[in-house]
Amino acid sequence: MTLATRIIPCLDVSNGRVVKGINFVNLKDAGDPVEMAAIYAREGADEITFLDISASVEGRGTTLENVRRTADQIFIPLTVGGGISSVNDVDQLLRAGADKVSINTAAIRNPELISDIVERFGTQVLVLSVDARRARTKSGFEVTTHGGRESAGLDAFDWIEAAASRGVGEILLNSMDRDGTRSGYDLEMIRKVRQICDVPLIASGGAGDLLDFERALAEGADALLAASVFHFGIYRIGEVKAALSRSGYVVREAHGVSEN
């Protein structure tokens, strides 16, 4: 009787379409997030994350519609992040069927937003997304915004402690140095953040090898998020879980229960 390690595929969605290439299904264009979410759910994903990178209002509307369609069909948790800047944005997403939201830039700009969201909806809906990279700051890591392109001028650990004190449900720790490189999670960063946070820690950025997943767990991650390895068909979710299981980690098997 132990909590299973969560494996979370992340879909980058722009104007309602998945924008990273996905090789293992033969879709005509970049991909329908609802369809992709359903495939991942069938393959044993423990949660799905949509990262909305739409620049336009229309794009956001399309994303809301996709959240609705996904929540109608897929009965596992759905987290939506990207561009959330107000309590009203959160309300709209939750009403559309999202279970959790992740916030990043807006919280840095206005930390009060964390408190406002938590007060209205509870800590369990809020994932603090931290895009961190190595830098000459106190902890050796700084926070970035705009997908890692800009420094927020904040020490990553100071920020995590300040944000966590307002009450967040989880921390999504994304290594901008490793993002998309498939060279492994930033293990030192995971280890050090684990020491200062007592909410669930989702490791993100750099998964490339089957061993990378268990290395992150060994440093204290509670859940593992990955995009490229799944989208490019390098590993199936089931393969990652089987490898973790062989190494003694507890995973949820995707055998399912018949639905007749």
């Binding site: 132990t2 299973a4 669930p200 509670d222 949820r252």
Partner: peptide, 12 residues
């Protein structure tokens, strides 16, 4: 040590 309890757990 880590809360909330988030994720898939066995019910017996």
């Amino acid at each position: 040590p880590v809360l909330p309890h988030i994720g898939w757990n066995e019910v017996n």
